[in-house]
Amino acid sequence: MANIIASPTRYIQGKGELKNLCKHAERLGSKLFILTSNSGRGRVEPAISEGLRETECTAHYEVFRGECCDSEISRLKELYLASGCDLVVGIGGGKIHDTAKAIAYYTKSPVVIVPTIASTDAPCSALSVIYSDAGVFDRYLFLPASPNMVLVDTDVVSQAPLRLLVSGMGDALATYFEARACQRSNATNCVGGKITLAAMRLARLCYDTLLADGVKAALAVQNKVCTRAVENIIEANTYLSGIGFESGGLAGAHAIHNGLTALEETHALYHGEKVAFGTLVQLMLENAPEEELEEVIDFCMAVGLPTTLADLGVKEPDSKRLMEVATLAAAPGDTLGNMPFEVTPQTVYAAILAADAAGRYYKEEV
């Protein structure tokens, strides 16, 4: 099997780039179908309209209803076809991105992704995560190509709430460890090939950037400023993690995230917050060295990522419910099968409790 790496055709990141959206998008289409939230539209439309006047493009806005599920994708697909537009643009967070990518896939249209937050690595991937109408993980929709373009306005992203940037760090935190597990097991990555040297290096660079700049970036965003550290973390959360996870592969951390969606208490948390705890669970499954575990937990605590079940809102975990989480995480179609050893619901259950205990232990040490 070939080694394969995938990426967007073009990645654009810089301050004030939102006003250049139409200029950049013109090579793909002139009638933009812009999917965003109601509140998001109010924040981005002025800049887009400013740039629109300098092009031949038109913009048609539709409101995303909050869940990347089959019913919402079908609704928006029909609206897109009726609109006469020729380019899908998803502006907002991860579920808007995944929905926009799915619409583009089903209508055979180009797609531009514009993150307004750096909370996940969804923007660059050839993947949509599909949930039920109630928000429970359903399946991955693997797409034939990455987005045609990803455009990141760092002025916009740096003004978003700090928790969203930190959630992105949680998602990015898993990238190296999952790629490493896939490399060890010789697993197939998300684009149907084996891991390239470049993908593995990008995954490691993602982790190293988090350790080097994560705390500095969090402090800057807390004070509503965009520093070099913020720029680096936005790139790590969005591009390095996006290429790293997709071309490196998914393993334990994201499967644990999917299992945690069975607990209603966790629905209030962001994707990356649950993935961060999933990373701790994966490290427990691997019996990772204590120094590595401590480094990851220290990072999580420093930036404000969950390290215990209580942090996830699960105040009174019971064995039956946690076994449901473990069983869902270890489902045959999920990515725990990419670990370099056999994983069962019982071993996942034990690793969840061990990760929770480790998180509580290090909190007491501080």
Rank of each mutant, 00 (worst) to 15 (best):
T344R: 10
V343L: 04
M323F: 14
L309F: 05
N338D: 05
L353H: 12
D318W: 04
P317L: 06
E316N: 14
Y349N: 11
S319E: 15
T335Y: 06
A357D: 10
Q346L: 06
L322H: 06
T327C: 08
R321W: 00
M339G: 00
D311L: 02
K315N: 12
A326Y: 01
I352D: 11
N338I: 07
D318E: 14
A326C: 07
M323P: 00
M339F: 01
Y349W: 12
F341G: 05
A351I: 04
V325P: 03
A357W: 04
T335L: 07
M339W: 00
E316C: 04
T344Q: 07
D334A: 00
V343T: 14
L328P: 00
M323K: 13
A350Q: 15
V343W: 04
M323S: 04
P340M: 09
A329H: 12
L353A: 02
I352L: 15
V325L: 03
E316H: 13
L353D: 01
E316M: 09
P317H: 01
L322W: 08
T344P: 08
K315L: 14
D334M: 07
Q346H: 07
R321M: 05
E316D: 13
G333P: 00
V303Y: 06
P317F: 03
M323V: 02
P332D: 13
P306I: 00
P306D: 04
T308E: 05
A355D: 12
F341L: 07
A310T: 13
